[in-house]
């Protein structure tokens, strides 16, 4: 791709480019900063502001399906009344509160399951011989590179009424009737843990691989049983990895749409799915925007925790 540029070329080309930029009134330095900054302002920051604005607008039949928040020079009281309508709607209808509570609960339970599965895996990789570690890590990351949607789909084949698990159990004569596994909350847990497991293993591995073996030996020499050593030495030292990994699972799980709609039942309410339906089925853009903003507010604390944990890991490395 860009390797063609490796060969040395006449210096005048660079001089020419630099001159061209200077003629436009841009130093190279400013251009490097400005290009990504402008892009992110236009396609990341402004869209969020637009969401805020539309969450404060009224729903209308039409295209686009909301009323302008302010005609130029409109009175402000209008804005304030509209403000309350969409957010009040979220409070009044218990569907939304239930969806938020459910999302947090499902995300939290999935995170704990993922932690319990990932911790021994990360410990095993960190304690295996150095030449095997990269291969094992790649085995953890590899599924992440295959399509997310298809990995969720794979579980539909596993958990379904005529799925592989039911067929195997019935073939072995363990059960007579197929178990109902698909379209349950349990299937959603499996889906979330499965798709986000690499995000949990990697930060745990990073924390555990740096752990000084002599600390564990010292603890054992002083008579601590392995479990006590784990609780008092290993666990506290790997805490940044635990927090970072947990947040990397918890945060995307909160807004998850694909997993609850493919593996969950009709009653598995999650907020990502509610937002999707509000937008695509009800075409109520203002309420969808209000749902998005409340979701962002819920995510503020987990995102802050994540950044604290990541900074702790970075500082340790230095």
């Amino acid at each position: 791709m860009s390797t063609g540029v490796v060969q040395p070329r006449p210096g005048r080309i660079w001089g020419f480019i630099a001159n061209a930029l200077r003629r436009m009134g841009l130093s190279g330095r400013t251009a490097i900063i400005l290009a990504p900054t402008l892009w992110l302002v236009i396609f990341f920051l402004i869209p969020l502001i637009v969401v805020f604005k539309i969450a404060l607008s009224a729903f209308a039949m039409g295209r686009p399906p909301y009323l302008p928040m302010f005609e130029w020079g409109a009175d402000e009281s209008l804005t304030i009344t509209l403000h309350f309508s969409n957010f009040l709607f979220l409070v009044r209808d218990s569907l939304y509160a239930n969806a938020y509570i459910n999302s947090v609960r499902i995300a939290a339970i999935s995170t704990i399951i993922a932690l319990v599965i990932a911790y021994p895996m990360a410990w095993f990789i960190a304690r295996s011989e150095e030449k095997h570690r990269n291969l094992l890590l790649m085995l953890v990351i590899l599924p992440f590179w295959t399509s997310f949607l298809l990995r969720v789909y794979a579980w539909m084949g596993f958990l379904g009424r005529n799925g592989i698990i039911n067929n195997t159990l019935m073939g072995l004569g363990i059960i007579d009737e197929p178990l109902v596994m698909l379209q349950t909350e349990g299937a959603v847990f499996v889906g979330i843990v499965y798709t986000y497991l690499p995000f949990m293993v990697l930060p745990l591995y990073t924390a555990l691989v740096k752990l000084d073996q002599s600390l564990i030996e010292a603890s054992a020499d002083l008579g601590a049983r392995p479990f006590v050593t784990f609780l008092t030495v290993i666990l506290p030292l790997s805490l940044p990895g635990i927090i970072a990994g947990s947040m990397l699972v918890f945060i995307p799980a909160i807004g998850e749409f694909v997993i609850p709609s493919l593996l969950g039942g009709a009653d598995t309410l999650m907020i990502g799915r509610v937002l999707w339906d509000e937008f695509f089925a009800n075409r109520d853009w203002p309420v969808a925007s209000a749902v998005a903003i409340v979701m962002l507010i819920i995510l503020i604390i987990p995102i802050m925790l994540l950044s604290i944990a990541q900074n702790a890991v970075v500082e340790k490395n230095q």
Binding site: P36, L40, L275, S289, M295, L306
Partner: peptide
């Protein structure tokens, strides 16, 4: 604006997809 750029460049990593999609469509 370095802090702002640092924040904006990593924020999409933790932004739920439904919000990214909705906000860009509205834009």
């Amino acid at each position: 604006g370095k802090t702002a750029l640092t924040g904006m460049v990593s924020a999409p990593l933790v932004m739920p997809e439904v919000i990214t999609g909705l906000s860009l469509l509205l834009l």
